[in-house]
């Protein structure tokens, strides 16, 4: 659904710094774990990562210079969940977006806590809202919702409706229930008279055209 736009950036002839070239080369070397590395805009890189290799890729990127984990989040595409990792380099002032797809029915991902301690906070929220289990995350429990909740509200299957919709639905149900009650309580109407015998077919109606061989 969301493309990486690498071709567009190349076509625009964006000036690439030496660091960005180096990152692209490193990402290319990490294939097949990393695919589609590209530069979207100056100082904006993007790449797609295979689900199991995110820890190694982010460790390599941290060594290169992406020292800050800005955000780790999910986008729910129902059958799949796309994990998005956004890394920023304070020295080179460059942002990279890593996307990786995991299963939507039983979402499991590797935890980035061995690389950044602060990843725990993002992962707790992703677990709380989407139900993604991060293997290796210490203290993986709910953070924003009450502990006894069992649902994951940011999944697309969890629907919210506005108070106007709630009211409309309640009124529609009430009206339906009232109509059903009225229909049940009303006296049954007398049986309709027997229909008249069917009229004989008219004589001058041309017979139906039959699909016969030409």
């Amino acid at each position: 659904m969301t493309g990486t736009g690498g071709a567009a950036a190349a076509a625009a002839g964006a000036a690439r710094s030496a660091f960005e070239e180096r990152v692209l080369a490193e990402l290319g070397a990490m294939a097949p774990a990393v695919s589609e590395p590209a530069i979207q805009k100056p100082h904006r890189l993007i790449a797609r990562v295979k689900a199991g290799s995110i820890v190694d890729v982010s460790r390599r990127l941290k060594l290169i210079g992406f020292d800050h984990l800005s955000c780790e989040t999910c986008v729910d595409y129902e059958s799949e969940i796309e994990m998005v990792y956004l890394l920023w380099s304070y020295k080179e002032k460059c942002l990279i977006e890593l996307r990786s797809r995991i299963s939507g029915t039983e979402p499991k991902a590797a935890s980035l806590v061995p690389v950044w301690t602060g990843a725990e906070f993002h992962e707790r929220e992703a677990y709380d809202m989407f139900g993604v289990i991060f293997e290796g995350c210490p203290n993986l429990r709910r953070v924003l919702l009450p502990d006894e909740w069992t649902l994951f509200p940011f999944r697309k299957s969890f629907k919210i409706e506005s108070i106007h919709e709630k009211r409309k639905r309640a009124e529609a149900e009430k009206a339906k229930a009232a109509k059903a009650a009225a229909a049940a309580a009303a006296p049954k109407p007398p049986a309709p008279p027997a229909p008249p015998a069917p009229a004989p077919p008219a004589q001058n109606v041309p017979p139906e055209k039959e699909a016969g061989p030409k």
Binding site: P153, F158, I160, E161, S162, I163, H164, E165
Partner: peptide, 13 residues
Amino acid sequence: SGGPWHDSYNVIY
């Protein structure tokens, strides 16, 4: 009455 959060799953009206 719950304010602008009328479609929140967590707010009391």
